[in-house]
Simulated scan of single mutants.
Amino acid sequence: MKENWELAYEDYKSGMKRKDIAQKYNVSINTVKSWKQRHWNKKEGAPPKRKKGAPLKNKNASGRTPKKDENQNARKHGFFAKWLPEEVNQIIGEMPEDPLDILWANIQMQMAAIVRAQNIMYVIDENDKTVEKVEQKEGNVIGERWEVQQAWDKQANFMSAQSRAMKTLESMIKQYDELLHKNWELATEEQKARINQLKAQTGKITGEGQEIEDMSEIEGEIYGTSQTEEKA
């Protein structure tokens, strides 16, 4: 069975544009560029050999001098591309390049992890005790070892982990705010609007000025889905 890059190469040879190939195979345009650099150029033939004594020029696989943006793309994808799995290259190809967008993605993942921990580490009441077998010995020596976590132990661990996570989140938000205002004139309207969204979301997580009644509402804001969409 042919891989996507092989099928896409046939479309490319037939004259299909790279943006149309990206839509057809549900990948980013950077992934298509990666296919071309890693696979298609090899199929179309290696670059011409340099004559003995001729100066070494910065040529790409097609034999022409790459443009500035192509050199930047090579720095992002090309150095170790042939050693990486295809899906890793696709992830790299879809990563944002703007420092604000990279920081924003990390902030959203941190917030999602904090919200998710509310459900995973939730302690019902003071009687919420966990008993788990952690070891069992057989043979000449027979025995079992059990681990007991009392409600107060679990709650203390949760509070400690949550505190560390919130400090990391606050630091990232502060960094985003500083970076945003440092490059205010170059920032997009979406990047500027995010700072108020961040404050609103962290306010709901920490419970500042309100009670947290429904964590799914906060998850919806972070993941970009509404409760109505989730129920549908």
Results as ranks from 00 to 15, higher is better:
123 V>D: 07
123 V>P: 05
123 V>L: 08
123 V>N: 05
123 V>W: 07
124 I>K: 11
124 I>M: 10
124 I>A: 10
125 D>C: 07
125 D>A: 04
126 E>N: 10
126 E>M: 08
126 E>P: 07
127 N>W: 11
127 N>R: 12
127 N>S: 10
127 N>K: 13
127 N>M: 04
127 N>A: 07
128 D>L: 01
128 D>I: 02
129 K>P: 08
129 K>F: 14
129 K>R: 11
131 V>Q: 12
132 E>T: 15
132 E>M: 15
133 K>M: 10
134 V>F: 08
134 V>W: 11
135 E>T: 06
135 E>F: 09
135 E>L: 08
135 E>W: 09
135 E>C: 06
136 Q>C: 08
138 E>N: 14
138 E>S: 15
139 G>I: 06
139 G>C: 03
140 N>E: 03
141 V>P: 03
142 I>V: 15
143 G>H: 04
143 G>V: 07
143 G>S: 06
145 R>V: 07
145 R>T: 10
145 R>N: 08
146 W>N: 00
146 W>T: 03
146 W>F: 06
147 E>F: 03
147 E>V: 04
147 E>H: 04
148 V>N: 02
148 V>A: 01
148 V>L: 07
150 Q>C: 07
150 Q>R: 08
150 Q>S: 08
150 Q>M: 10
150 Q>F: 14
151 A>F: 03
151 A>N: 03
151 A>Q: 00
151 A>V: 02
151 A>H: 01
152 W>N: 02
153 D>E: 11
153 D>P: 00
153 D>Y: 06
153 D>W: 01
154 K>P: 06
154 K>H: 05
154 K>Y: 03
154 K>L: 13
154 K>W: 01
155 Q>H: 03
155 Q>L: 01
155 Q>P: 00
155 Q>M: 04
155 Q>F: 00
156 A>F: 05
156 A>C: 03
157 N>Q: 14
157 N>Y: 06
157 N>T: 11
157 N>D: 13
158 F>W: 09
158 F>H: 11
158 F>Q: 06
158 F>T: 06
159 M>S: 09
159 M>E: 09
159 M>D: 08
159 M>Q: 10
160 S>M: 11
160 S>D: 10
160 S>N: 11
161 A>R: 14
